[in-house]
Design a protein around this nucleic acid. Sequence first.
DNA 1: AGTAGGATAATCT
DNA 2: GATTATCCTACTG
Length: 209
Amino acid sequence: MLLVGPVQVAARGLLGCLVTDGGVTLRLTEVEAYAGIGQDPGSHAHRRRTPRNASMFGPPGHAYVYFTYGMHWCLNVVCGPVGHASAVLLRAGEVIEGIGVARGRRRRGRDRDLARGPARLATVLAVDRAVDGTPMLDGTGPLRLSDRYPVDPKSIRSGPRVGVAVDHPWRFWIAGEPTVSPFRPYLSRRPPPGNPAAGRTPGAEESAG
DNA sequence: AGTAGGATAATCT
DNA sequence: GATTATCCTACTG
């Protein structure tokens, strides 16, 4: 699998790949690409290196895990090279092994929703702060990223990333997969004064299907 | 089916 | 002090 190179290419290549924590294995159906300093206003690494985003500057194939909204963990695969920040957010997957363990970690929802959305995916893989910075390719860490179920390039769709204000079409998913999460445009907390209706920005329409 | 609002705390300004 | 790469519940139709 090719992680070093344009992060959008790496993102496409991660669709269909398997991620396992030993108890649960997912087949990835939806991902998003995030680039580095000065290249991507939507990226955690847009401005500079900080304690939180340090893993994004580390070796490719390692995990970048962050905590958000006061309650959710999210898992990324770092894409190289060292010193150049980029990562692919793992947004959704299909549980293909360890369904019982997965149900134990997420008691609510239908099976197809177990890893539908980045925080749900992290929950099902038991990802938290301890996973940040660990290798995913050599089997020495808690996670294992392995090679890929065949994905027809024609079945890959792309569109704006979820919840990102100004955006490139750097979200990628496999068409027709029920595990792909619904699209949601960026929503600002406080509507701009004088414009009471909305803090929406126009986004794209489709999701899965 | 679709939308609206709240939860909740690390991180950054 | 404001923001946030989200999810859940409740409500409307």
